[in-house]
């Protein structure tokens, strides 16, 4: 891992911001987020609903246009390149979606769904080559060949998600945004898909941005983790460091809120945080977490804390760390 980090980052975002103009004001979905992802690594993005993690994923692929900030892919700034060029770049950057029920067109059969990206991008000259490739992809993700002519509704969630994975792989991307790819699946199927994603990463040297609300999943798959709260990155560290040594009060609360399948932990003290996520529309100045933070101090609601490195590769945005 240490060796890889000396290489240039595959994906980098600097001060990435996405503000939606909604009827009640300005919705700060992503607010000044920075990160780097090195080739072959996985950055896990964790947060509760409304923290902007899905918007972040969409913005990275420019399915939503960023309001400001810079994005680099293999060193190339692409936040403002034209539609055509972006289409070309998207071949290297793909996405796996959350809901295996709505992310594939119910009117198309499995083979056509997987073939679609290759047809659009004219990856191969003939249909025969494309469909031969479809068969290979189905094999890679563990879908039986006989399912090629099946329609999505005939398949269960796990198989549908495999279709989504095969489609994302079809253009040989280097980078994949996984937007809650296992949240809609049962535990036993969830583990199958996670294993598949990890195997594919090893085999094709893929780089992932893995978005999820499930902390145990993110620990399993990520090398680095970024915790988001209301559009801001509150803490970023390597996976092991974050779980062993969480610094931000929100991260601590998040970790202790996970119900552990172990009854000896039943009566452990949990750091319950009060209240709920406040609205990301016209946020007040200061730390976004201040209203719920058990350790908030006066300055927390006045000045926004900056992300600073508290130990090597461990970044926290909290006034308590200053």
């Amino acid at each position: 891992m240490a060796e890889l980090k000396t290489a240039a980052p595959l994906m980098e975002a600097r001060n990435l911001t996405k503000i939606f103009n909604v009827s009640r004001g300005m919705l700060h979905a992503v607010d000044g987020v920075d990160f780097k992802i090195y080739p072959g690594q996985t950055l896990g993005v964790v947060g509760e609903s409304g923290c902007g993690k899905s918007t972040l994923g969409n913005t990275i692929l420019r399915l939503t246009e960023p309001t400001s900030g810079e994005m680099y892919f293999e060193g190339k700034e692409y936040s403002k390149v034209g539609k055509r060029e972006m289409r070309e770049m998207r071949k290297d950057m793909q996405m796996i979606f959350q809901d295996p029920y709505s992310s594939i067109d119910p009117r198309m059969c499995v083979a056509d769904i997987i073939a679609e990206y290759m047809i659009i991008n004219r990856t191969y000259k003939t249909k025969r080559e494309i469909y031969a490739q479809v068969e290979k992809l189905m094999d890679t993700v563990g879908l039986a060949k006989r399912l090629a002519e099946a329609y999505p509704h005939e398949l269960d969630g796990g198989r549908r998600q495999r279709i989504g994975v095969a489609r994302a792989l079809s253009l040989n991307p280097k980078f994949i945004v996984c937007d809650e790819p296992v949240s809609a699946l049962d535990v036993s199927i969830q583990a199958q898909i996670l294993n598949l994603l990890m195997d594919l990463q090893d085999e094709y040297k893929l780089t992932y941005l893995f978005i999820t609300h499930n902390l145990s999943v993110v620990k399993q798959i990520s090398s680095d983790i970024m915790v988001m709260y209301l559009g801001k990155c509150v803490e970023r560290a390597t996976s092991d460091e974050l779980f062993a040594n969480p610094r931000h009060p929100y991260t601590k609360a998040l970790l202790s809120a996970i119900p552990v399948p172990d009854i000896s932990m039943r009566n452990k003290e949990i750091h319950l945080i009060q209240g709920e996520v406040t609205s990301p529309i016209n946020p007040k100045p200061g730390c976004r977490f201040a209203a719920r933070c058990p350790m908030a101090r006066p300055e927390c609601s006045q000045e926004s804390p900056h992300l600073r490195e508290v130990s090597p590769n461990h970044f926290v945005a909290c006034h308590l760390e200053e």
């Binding site: 583990a191 294993n195 990890m198 620990k219 399948p261």
Partner: peptide
């Protein structure tokens, strides 16, 4: 046993999960 094996464990990191095969 399979159900427990499918849950990623927060305390130990393993290379692969041990899911229940099939449906």
């Amino acid at each position: 046993v399979g159900l427990f094996g499918s849950i990623p464990n927060l305390n130990v990191k393993v290379d692969r999960l041990s899911p229940i095969p099939g449906l």
